[in-house]
Amino acid sequence: MSESARGEGGRVWTYKDGKPWYFLEEMYPEYGNLVPRDVATRAIFHVCVDLGLGVDGKNQVYLDVSHIPTEELNVKLGAILEIYEKFVGDDPRKIPMRIFPAMHYSMGGLWVDIDQQTNIPGLFAAGEVEYQYHGANRLGANSLLSCIYGGMVAGPNAVKYIRGLRRSVDSLPDSLYDQHRRKEDENFERILKMDGSENPYEIHRELGQWMTDNVTVVRYNDRIQKTEEKIVELMERYQRIGVSDKSRIENQTAQFTRHLWNMLQMARAITRGAYLRNESRGTHFKPDFPERDDEHFLKTTKATWTPDGPKIEYEDVDVSLIPPRTRNYAVAKEATEQ
């Protein structure tokens, strides 16, 4: 279910003492159901996991739009409500929807400079792949904005970069390309030949489960540490994968196996970064370190690949134009601005 349902007046609630409890409205009187997604997510987690007040005892709460007139819903939210109805079978125009937070954006990504160029000269990145605009949090509807802006910066800079080159692609020796191509070919052939007992999709499933359970909404250092150990174990098991499909036509298993290795690397970098950041900031929430710690962590985490796992460094965030202030959604914005 899209966040826009809250934007259009949807109310989040669950039962407490037999009565509907509009917990977002109660916890954040000033913003109510319109609090940012990380805040809403944590509140729902708290209600379901800590208080055990999820609907029907499960990890779910109600998102209720049934008080909004049907015609208005059909015009503004018709498409998403229809999908809900297809999946669940209840009409959300009449019965509150049952929801739980899920991942749908990667904050952080490739490091780029102010021209949107990565640390590989000539390789530009814009959009969700790069890290620049949504460090610890991404506010609703801002992703497409950053995609458009990033693209507008990257395009002209790529042209400028090409014009500034002294040698072009064609003047480089073919052997350079052949050498890399051969390397990738060999890698693929190696994957095709893998004949162990592990299934790549099973490894992926476990990876997903561990990451979702321990490195998403609520993070504890001991569990994060166990997760990294698990990832290392999965990397070992990866070597024993058996690729059951030997075909050279659209071999999805081989492609997936190839990607899976990168996913494992990526997961490890995220996990290690999360472990080292002992504070709470945006979506990164550690109950053991509930406060934001600008002194130590008003910084971007940078992970570099090394054969022994990711190396973590930090880079200061440029706050010269807008000084950071406390995020407090219980009171009006002005009250936080002294």
Partner: peptide
Amino acid sequence: MTEVATQQGR
């Protein structure tokens, strides 16, 4: 994060 129907998150 967004909210999904719980059926998928089972």
